[in-house]
Amino acid sequence: MTKFALIFPGQGSQVVGMGRELADARPVTAEAFRQADAAIGYNLSQIMWEGPQETLNLTYNAQPAILTASIALYRAFLQENPDFEFVCTAGHSLGEYTALVAADALSFEDAVRLVNARGRFMNEAVPAGQGAMSAVIGMDRALLADICERVSAEYGPVELANVNCPGQIVISGKAEAVTRAGEVISAEGGRDKPLVVSGPFHSSLMKPAADRLAEEMKTVEFRDAKVPVIANATAGPVQGADEIREALVRQVYAPVLWEDSVRVMIEQYGVEAFLEIGSSSVLAGLNKKVNKAVPTHFFKDLDTFAKVQTAIKGESTNA
C-alpha cells in the first residue's frame, strides 16, 4: 500500500461559494456546514456561500470557513473511501487544526470555535496598520534570516513567518521593519511583495494572541492523535494531547516550517504521496518545489473528486 500523508491548506484559500456545490450533492457534506453554524453561533455558511468576499476575508470568518470547507470535503472523501489510511497528517497554519480533527485529536465543533477565537485574538493583537507581511521570492533562507536580524535591531521585529518552499518565504513584523527589510532584500538581489493581511501573523508580535488562545484552550478537550501530526512550529511530530495544545499556542507566534515539514513526512515517515483536501491546491504547488518526485493529489470540488479517486486507486495499484 502507498504511504499517504493527509494535508490541509490555511488562510488565504477562502473564496465565496466554496463547498456549496458538494453540499448540494452530498448530505454528509451539508451536515458539516450545519454543525459549523451551530458551533459558532451565527450563519457562517451563508457568508461562505453568498459573501461578500470582504466579509469572508475577515480573519475570524476566514479561519472557521476554511476549516469547515476542508472537513466537509474530507467527509465526502471518506464516504467513498472508508478504508483510506494515512501515516501522518499536517496543515499549513490554520490547516493544522483541520489535521487534528482528521487525526481525531479534536472535535470538529471545538475546532470551529477555537479557530474563530484564534482569528479574533490575532486580529486584535496588533492595532491596524502597525504590522505587515511580505512574500520574499528567490532568496536563501539563511541570508533572509540574517537580513531580518539586522533590520530588527534597528527598526523593531521582522521575522521569518512562513518557510513555504525553496525560494518562497514570507516575512512578518512591525510595518516599518518589513518595509525596510524589503529595501535590503531588493539590494541583495531578492524580490518582495507586500501581502494584504490584517496583522503580522506568525511573528513575536502575536504573543498576546497566543496567551489568550492558551486560556481559551483550557475549555476544550484534546485527545491523543491517532497518527502523528507534523507541527508547523517545529516540523516535528506531536501526538499526545498536551504536546498538541502546546504546539498550537506556539504556532501563533512562530514561523510555519512547511518546507521542513514536507521533508520530515517524506524522509522520516516514508510518505510516497500526499493528499491535499481543501478549497485550494496551494500546497500541491509548494510540495512540488520541495520534492517533485513525490506527488500531491488534491480534492477541492466535484471536478477534482473523480480525478483524485482515480489517482488514489492508481497509487494503491502501483504500490
Rank of each mutant, 00 (worst) to 15 (best):
V15K: 13
E54Y: 07
G182E: 00
A128C: 01
R113C: 12
R150Y: 04
V184A: 05
Q309R: 12
F108E: 07
F298Q: 00
Q168Y: 09
D140I: 11
K174S: 10
D104C: 13
M1Q: 15
A225W: 00
A32I: 14
S13K: 09
K307S: 11
I169V: 14
V290K: 08
N57R: 10
M265K: 03
G10V: 09
V16T: 12
E31A: 15
A225H: 00
E31G: 04
F86P: 00
Q63P: 13
A117H: 07
Q309D: 13
L195N: 15
A254N: 15
A231L: 02
R191C: 10
G173P: 00
D146C: 13
N116D: 15
Y155N: 11
V101F: 03
Q46S: 11
H297I: 08
K288D: 10
E124F: 12
N164V: 03
V178Q: 09
S261Y: 10
E31L: 11
A38T: 13
Q53W: 08
V178L: 07
N287Y: 09
Q46L: 12
I169R: 06
A284R: 07
N318D: 13
R245W: 09
A293V: 13
V126F: 01
L195A: 01
L78E: 11
E276S: 09
I277C: 01
E246V: 12
F77N: 02
A69L: 04
E31V: 15
R118T: 08
A111R: 09
I185D: 00
L275C: 05
M122K: 05
L205C: 01
P9S: 15
D37P: 07
K307D: 14
P52Y: 09
P9R: 00
S316D: 15
I230G: 00
A36E: 10
A30H: 09
F33W: 07
K313F: 04
E54M: 01
D301L: 01
K207L: 12
M133D: 04
A273D: 01
E96H: 11
G131N: 06
A30R: 03
